[in-house]
Design a protein around this nucleic acid. Structure first.
Lengths: 91, 91
DNA sequence: CATTTATATAGAAACATTTGAATATTTAAA
DNA sequence: TTTAAATATTCAAATGTTTCTATATAAATG
């Protein structure tokens, strides 16, 4: 993972609303629907859409179209790769 | 570690110059001098000072005054706590 | 096919971050 | 104790981010 990617993921994680979205995955078992995120956050729909876009662009979330709905799954691989980079900062 | 802290650390990590500073610790053994960071980055001294401040405010770096010099050590504990929070996002 | 539902995009206002020039502060050295 | 060196602060310009309103697109339903 190069530094541009580390930067992008860090930026995606640097917002209270986006952290809340990611933490919501612990409560829902495997996936989160777009509409559920709209309910979760105290923001308008376009603002939520913007935040989800940041997380998808950073590849922390993987979007899956289901008819006219959209669901997201957490990309554990990217999260693991990011954590590995952070661990590499040590020693 | 609360969400405000996660947000602050993430933001500190969301800049190419600050990532470069942290990575420089791998090359130097235990600490980095302020003047070394000035040499490392292609920025004016006040800009470097600004970036170091962000890292110190996030507690990723611990500053130690040595006469009129200033050296930094990496705060491995904070980095570990942050990584733990990221790991908690999974499962 | 017209309507409704779900999500995205455009554009603008508000706010935050980054950067550098100028200057201040602190400490060592002459 | 004046001068030089290292770092910090102030301020403003440039840039980037967040949020909203309004509108567009896409897909399902009647």
């Amino acid at each position: 993972m190069d530094n541009k990617k580390i930067e992008k993921i860090s930026r995606a994680l640097s917002d209270a609303n986006r952290i809340a979205i990611l933490q919501q995955f612990k409560k829902k078992k495997d996936c989160l629907y777009c509409a559920e995120v709209n309910d979760l956050l105290d923001l308008t729909q376009p603002s939520v859409s913007h935040h989800l876009k940041q997380l998808v662009d950073a590849e922390l979330l993987l979007p899956q179209k289901e008819g006219r709905n959209l669901k997201y799954v957490l990309n554990q691989q990217v999260l693991d790769d990011y954590i590995t980079c952070l661990n590499d900062l040590k020693e």
